[in-house]
Design a protein around this nucleic acid. Sequence first.
RNA 1: GGCGCUAUCGUCUAGGGGUUAGGACGUCAGAUUCUCAAUCUGAAAACCCGGGUUCGAUUCCCGGUAGCGCUACCA
Length: 526
Amino acid sequence: MPPGFDARGGSTFFSVFSHAQAKLVAMANIRVRFAPSPTGYLHVGGARTALYNWLFARRHGGVFVLRIEDTDLDRSKPELVTAILEGLEWLGLHWDEGPIHQSERLDRYRDLAARLERSGHAYPCFCAPEELQAKRARAEAERRAWKYDGTCRNLSQAEQARRRAEGRPAALRFRVPESGETAFDDEVFGRVVLQNSQIEDFVLLRSDGNPTYHLGVVSDDLDLRITHVIRGADHLSNTPKQVLMYRALAAPPPVFAHLPLILGPDRQRLSKRHGATAVGAYREQGVLPEALRNFLALLGWTPPAGADKPDGKEVLTIEEMIATFDLQAVSKSNAVFDLEKLAWMNSVYLRALPRNRLLALAEAELASAGLWREAWADPPAAGPSAGQAQAGSEREAFASTVMLLQSRARTLKDFSGSFRAFFSDQFDYDAEAVKKFWKEPALPGLLRELAARLERVEPFTAQKCEKKLREFAEEKKLKAGVLINAARVALTGQAVAPSLFDVMAVLGRTPTVARLSRAANFLDKT
RNA sequence: GGCGCUAUCGUCUAGGGGUUAGGACGUCAGAUUCUCAAUCUGAAAACCCGGGUUCGAUUCCCGGUAGCGCUACCA
């Protein structure tokens, strides 16, 4: 580390350091952080921010720090911290340090605030919040721009002391220069410049002694030696305030990279109104973490096209993402969260899932829907015995059912939803399916006869079943399709399912025959 | 209202002073077929508007418009 790099050293060396040079130094020892506030669940926007931070750290061999910004005591809920951590773990975004709770670091913030006050960069403000609110409301009513008016900015030492002696509560405000401008070079947005006259003397320390966001972030980013601040673009306009603080502390600011926001289909900022925004909700809906992660990665970032990754390849392994992630390739414009594309991506990942993992996930889904049967469980690896051989065959039947269904699943929910008939005898006949495929008047008799013939098929395989059914159709001078489609509805209750004969094989003889008869009985009654 | 940022198919985006403006999702059509999905083939679909610079702007500059963000003793 070159001299003068200790952020807390207060060296002025950095004031002459160019942005490019600072960047170079920062690259040598990358430290990034994700700093959610536990006032809500892990939002997909937050998850993407975390992902980009994580990718950046992994790409550059850096450290990914997790920090919980819980300085708003009223709104922060400890149980939400757990939910956020779980969300991150689920997505595979493991942090190297933390979680660090800001609520446990109040001394650090007060120290920094005191330092700022001593150096004249901050001053106590005795204005009552209600008073300020009234002024603001008035200004708004008169359609004037409002900014803190500096009432307490130039109080004499004696006056400050007098008011303190009176026990009047004071907030600490940052003294923003009256003129000039503040600029920084954002990795995504480029140079951003703001007139200091536009920035108000913002609060650093509340009158109850707790820090505000700005104090907390700068203090912690300094303490944690954060080199790159990668966060949502909603912080872009706040950044000059923080840059001003770094300047007042004679400390080098980190490199900033702001990420465009994620919007709902109506182009409004994504919120509950648009449906699920919490990562956990997607998990519950049967989305795979790697699918959500891949989808989120592409929401604002385009991987480079190369020989190994021809234009159009959007399904990326985590390794490919790490190898190619680049802040320069992050888009500047906000992106609409496209549920359809997520669903597609999820089906791609679902189809590529290795057998064991798929079976485990299907089991979990069925269990939570109350459809799981212990007989399907993975038999213990111990030596074979009569009982286990039996269990093993049940297991095999379960496994082949799941594998048969794999290619048509959109989410894990399908296993307990549209695939229900494969795991339970309790299912209804879909009205549309009945209308479409149960038109043939002679159907009850046909289904019964078919059932009778299938009873004699040996062995009960897809091929044998198909042969039997086609022979039967020919005898009856029926198109095989009529029988096939009718039987599909009988076996699954649906018009949509895998190849009928595969369905028969997977169900087994007894359920197949029973369901055909049951359908015949049902038809008799209607 | 003030300030900031952004602007390519419906959506995510590539591209860049001269291109048939490329890809992905979705949509539509066809192939396949026992339904659906998958797969394959094909199609429709975009440079916000106005000025300027230029031989030539979708690309560069300015303005407008729209969208989003910030404008708290929230983060």
